[in-house]
Nucleic acid binder design. Structure first.
Lengths: 193, 193
DNA sequence: CCGAGTGAGTAGACACTGTCTACGCGCGGC
DNA sequence: GCCGCGCGTAGACAGTGTCTACTCACTCGG
């Protein structure tokens, strides 16, 4: 037994992550996940009482991935606090664009609204990390507020960019340039070098 | 015949708008729309070959609504260019929060990606309006880029606020304060009164 | 040693969805 | 007067999420 001794619960989430990356969000069916796991369509119910619960588990995997990526990006960045904020923001955008299906799932309204996917265990740690960096970069700023507004800007940027609205509207073709504009707007012109 | 002499096409869209406002996005079923219109579930197919096509028509209604609201807000605003940008942004946020289902539908990835809902007829006119106001407010700015980034910020703000992420993360309970922060970030400290 | 209990997964039903196709019905033009 | 045809109906089909009844291997207490 090379794989099948890991619990079915984990295997379902694994299959879901794969399927999500391969086929997109609308393909993330309960039955298809069960099929890919090699199990009947009623089996997941033993571990996830509802489809939404399984989706939430998959989304949590995504948040863990994002946090890991952010940590790696910060480890690579040796500059000052502002450069670290830029690295974090870059990692966030990168994640959203490289794993669009997962990002979409993570911020689905019905997942968030059903209190299943608690923000506390997911985006909040990353958010407080951002808040800390901003406080370090600019001690005079209202860090939580700036962090919140910056987060909103990154989120909107990722979405509008992904479905090419911003490219069409602004004519801009370089996302990094827009990101720099965002950082300047919220952190002021950078002394980072 | 008070209503039934308007074409079925329009009646379907009307019923869809109502249903969307009353029950939310996931209730916006082809069959339910047909039911509420008083026709069989196959009838819509005569006008909308697919469910997505009908949803796109409903979303277009939403964009028209949003544009109308924006125009009214600008008509009410007698201040300078910056105040007009603020009025436009406020109307945008108001719309997103008062009609969450419609806003969600308007920015559904699969609608936008399926080229059916052309940005040209929908959000682009509003966007160029915003660009013009920004150019007037700050002649030195790269107006399209600032407009794009500001739009992204408004979009992100609307979404994160709606599912209460920002409230939880920042502790802020006043959306207008966050909006002011956004405007200051992208337009500079306001001379607006 | 063995039989009861139990936990995990199966199989099928149900109501619902979107799509497709065959069918009528009523009305206007020749 | 009849034909055609646009418009809507009715039913079938595959697929979905949920629920329930069942099987079956495995453990554990006597």
């Amino acid at each position: 037994m090379t794989e099948s001794d890991t619990s079915l619960r984990d295997r379902l989430v694994d299959a879901g992550v794969e399927l999500l990356a391969a086929e997109g969000l609308q393909a993330l069916t309960l039955r298809e996940i069960a099929r890919r796991t090699g199990v009947s369509h009623g089996a997941p119910r033993r571990y996830f009482p509802t489809h939404l619960e399984l989706l939430s588990a998959i989304a949590r995997r995504g948040f863990a991935d994002l946090a890991e990526r952010a940590r790696q990006a910060l480890d690579r960045e040796t500059g000052g606090a502002r450069a670290r904020v830029a690295a974090l923001a870059g990692a966030y955008l990168e994640f959203a664009l490289e794993q669009p299906g997962m990002y979409e799932l993570m911020f689905r309204h019905d997942l968030l609204e059903s209190g299943r996917l608690g923000l506390r265990e997911t985006s909040l740690p990353l958010f407080s990390l951002l808040t800390g960096l901003i406080a370090a970069a600019d001690p005079g700023a209202d860090a939580p507020r700036v962090a919140g507004v910056l987060w909103a800007n990154l989120h909107g940027l990722a979405q509008l960019w992904r479905w090419r609205s911003l490219q069409l509207a602004t004519g801009e073709e370089d996302l990094a340039a827009l990101l720099e504009t965002v950082l300047v707007a919220h952190l002021g012109p950078g002394g980072g070098r």
